[in-house]
Nucleic acid binder design. Structure first.
Length: 422
RNA sequence: GGAAGCGUGGCAGAGCGGCCGAAUGCACUCGCCUUGAAAGCGAGCGUCACGAAAGUGACCGGGGGUUCGAAUCCCCCCGCUUCCGCCA
């Protein structure tokens, strides 16, 4: 959520910035609601101040003057009530409006609205495709770790069952990712709820605009949502708290299931592990000082890249176009892993700088030693998703003999160094 | 699910319907003292909103109500604690 004054400040250039992501900001409406709200606050405060003075006067009043004072005070109450109601009404309008305004894309982002407009940052490893390379579905079934037909029986499309050495590999990946995050990169691990309330979803920006992307439960008159990523509970851990500025940055990680409705992606990635309603992921979240956020994003991206490199996975990093970044983001890098089976780079991780956009919504404040107050900045990145990493391991690790080589770093975790056809 | 009790500032803990944004202690900040530290002494020390500022207003779990006036009285809700039941 934005500070309305900042949006209205011509120096912010909000209208132009938001137009780059296709959002038309109605500054006149914002101005009208904000000034209406502020005027109502003033009227209410002034009437209340007068009413307080009268109340004090009632005490020392003689019996003769008392009724007049009481009556005057009663009359003022109407003014107060009316002003308060107007204040409330405008406040609700203002909040509703602001909650729907996306974050301002950074100027450094390329123009455009699709992944084709992203800017190539760097490439790591060789995008090799052997003759007759197979995709992960074929490979996964061939080496006996994937059973998509039974998953469909259990839950319908966009679910997966892992079997054979698959579950052990999955477990190895999540443990490895967490060990790197906590051991090498200084993240603190949490175990968090995967069912969260509306307020929490609003804090990170999933609500109110993107309810159709979420799985919702309405059991026993509760109103809870399944998290689409651990970003939601991790970032909101400090919602409505004030953090000591000198304690920042905070670096958090968690391995959780993630649930996405994938509304609007009919027909895309319909087979395999690429796009599921339920998958699991290790997520990295950083709460930092706003002035550090851009540098922190590079650091965070580096953490995700380190894991990719240690697995020996060829990938490239792209900076998303202004019209392609998420609602809450200012800058987003995608890490795209090379998939020989598709002959294409596909998104495996996404690292974003949200500036103070989420912190304002969630009320994550900071206080410096000298008493200066402000909002934190938040960032997150996958670190990494289990399913898509498995896809990449299968496709990049496939051997001419039909087996799949497991990266060395994982062997101590899973206990085998290859998958062989059943 | 049943019963009882409790929700006040970072913590602890006072608070006759007006003099309470709120005593006191601890913690914290600055200073004095000290070779240094502790102790001691002095001063300061909540958040938010409106306002250029002076200042004004709001906030004692949340929301309503009574009253000229509510932390204090009434109602509803939420949370927590303890006991019982149930359960992983």
């Amino acid at each position: 959520m934005h500070d309305p004054r900042v949006l209205l400040d011509p120096a912010t250039d909000a209208v132009r910035k938001l137009s780059r992501r296709g959002f038309a900001l109605d500054l006149a409406y914002l101005e009208k609601v904000l000034s209406g709200r502020n005027a109502a606050i003033r009227r209410g405060d002034e009437a209340r101040a007068e009413s307080k003075r009268l109340s004090t006067a009632v005490k020392g009043a003689t019996p003769e003057e008392r009724p007049a004072l009481v009556q005057a005070s009663r009359d003022l109450k109407t003014t107060v009530t009316e002003a308060d109601e107007e204040h409330k009404r405008h406040d609700a309008e203002l909040t509703e409006f602001l909650l729907g305004v996306p974050n301002l894309p950074a100027d450094e982002l390329p123009d455009g609205a699709s992944d084709a407009d992203a800017e190539l940052v760097r490439t790591w490893g060789e995008p090799l495709t052997a003759e007759g390379a197979r995709d992960h579905v074929e490979l996964g079934e061939s080496v006996g770790i994937l059973d998509l037909a039974r998953a469909t029986k259990l839950s319908g499309p966009r679910f997966a069952v892992l079997c054979g050495r698959g579950p052990a590999l999955e477990r190895a990946l999540s443990r490895y990712f967490l060990d790197v995050a906590t051991g090498q990169h200084g993240y603190t691990e949490f175990s968090v709820p995967t069912l969260v309330n509306r307020e929490t979803m609003t804090g990170t920006g999933q609500l109110p605009k993107f309810e159709q992307d979420l799985f919702r439960t309405g059991v026993a008159d509760r109103d809870l949502f399944l998290i689409p990523t651990a970003e939601v509970p991790l970032t909101n851990l400090h919602a409505r708290e004030t953090l000591a500025a000198e304690d920042l940055p905070l670096a958090y990680t968690a391995h959780t299931p993630c649930f996405r409705s994938e509304a609007g992606s009919y027909g895309r990635d319909t087979k395999g592990l690429i796009r599921l309603h339920e998958f699991s992921k290790v997520e990295l979240v950083r709460l930092v000082r706003p002035e550090d956020s851009r540098a922190e994003l590079e650091l965070l991206l580096g953490h995700a890249e380190t894991v990719m490199q240690s697995l020996g996975l060829a990938y490239r990093v792209v900076k998303l176009a202004a019209g392609d970044i998420g609602f809450s983001a200012e800058v987003t890098y995608d890490i795209e892993v090379w998939l020989p089976g598709q002959g294409a780079y596909r998104e495996i991780a996404s690292a974003s700088d949200f500036g103070s956009f989420q912190a304002r919504r969630a009320g994550i404040r900071t206080k410096a030693k000298d008493g200066t107050r402000g909002f934190a900045a938040t960032l997150n990145s996958s670190g990494l998703p289990i399913g898509r990493t498995l896809v990449a391991l299968l496709e990049q690790g496939q051997q001419p003999d039909g087996s799949v080589r497991i990266p060395e770093v994982l062997v101590p975790y899973c206990g085998f160094d290859s998958l062989v056809p059943a």
